[in-house]
Design a protein around this nucleic acid. Structure first.
Lengths: 183, 183
DNA sequence: CTTTTTCGTATCGATCCGATACTAATGGGG
DNA sequence: CCCCATTAGTATCGGATCGATACGAAAAAG
């Protein structure tokens, strides 16, 4: 596992160096490309990366100067800043394709084994997040707040919003694992 | 997977901050604690971490000043420097126990599922290392150079040395995956 | 005995990162 | 309504990582 972590970071460093970006910048872009409406803020990104908000603020400043992200105020709470990838940010991510290396790496493994491994890792991730008593991250699929309204429409019981199908597959910071009782 | 990588790094950062060490320092210590006789050099560590040798050289300088590692010349090739953990380095590693978090995270998963997941990940890791055309790392167990001489004694066909049982489970930089033909 | 290659170190500049202090907005008491 | 606490984000400073480059020394090649 440690070796995998190193390789992932090496990979990030390499693909980032083409654009003279640091690993953390690419990580931020990847996160923003997958964060849902509750999770596209500087604070959420800081929790996700395990960095302080001050540090992340500078990272975002740089990404903004580069034109890779856009920032705009929230309508309701005017303290929070909403983030999203700009067109060029999406293009950059698409061209560097961090996920591609993984697809290649697993090309010789049967889909069934991959599914099993992924589910085991997901469990480990859940336990690890609990132990770290930090913010939990996950998607609606295994979140106890998620409610299915119809074939395609879901609802977050915590926030009260209706969510489209694609949005239920994004990363959320108010994720709460099923199974366990919700506090 | 990306989330796991982040959490690992966050974990490293946290346990390192107690001793005011950076994540990369702990990674270096962990590596050195598991590197075999062919792999305990600055260059090997640089390949492992995906950093340049100059960068690693400074990291080692710091660890040396802290008394966490020991450096000494190689007897045969007097250019290379051999590295090993000092007593206090081992103690530090033992106390921070980076592996402990993983053991806890997998406590609720059946050993069988873990075995399957590990083997799938190992395959992915192998393919990933091949794609990256960098140095391969692995242990004798699945290395094509390894020869079993007796119940407990192994031999590296590449270097011609006899290796003890424990040493065959360490990380080696001249690893060559089985299955595929050796070039 | 040259020339080249390889292992490691030294120095410099860019930049990440945490700590601290700060502003602004929200929310909760009384 | 006012004061205080909390939260989101920014600004600034110093320490330290990291890559690039240059360098020295030993080994290998020719």
């Amino acid at each position: 596992m440690e070796r995998l972590g190193n390789l992932m970071r090496t990979e990030l460093r390499k693909s980032g160096s083409d654009e003279s970006l640091q690993p953390v910048h690419l990580q931020a872009l990847v996160y923003l490309s997958k964060a849902n409406r509750y999770s596209n803020t500087p604070q959420a990104l800081a929790d996700y990366l395990g960095l302080t908000k001050g540090t992340v603020s500078q990272t975002l400043l740089l990404l903004d100067r580069r034109g890779l992200i856009e920032r705009f105020e929230d309508d309701i709470d005017r303290r929070v800043v909403r983030l999203r990838l700009s067109a060029s940010g999406e293009r950059l991510l698409y061209e560097s394709q961090p996920a591609l290396a993984w697809q290649n790496a697993t090309r010789n493994i049967s889909p069934n084994r991959i599914r099993n491994a992924v589910s085991a890792l997901r469990e480990a991730l859940e336990t690890l997040q609990e132990d770290n008593e930090g913010t939990m991250f996950g998607d609606c699929q295994s979140c106890s707040w998620s409610q299915k309204l119809s074939q395609r429409i879901y609802r977050c019981g915590r926030m009260g919003d209706r969510l489209s199908g694609p949005e239920t597959r994004k990363i959320c910071r108010i994720y709460q694992a099923k199974v366990e009782e919700s506090v």
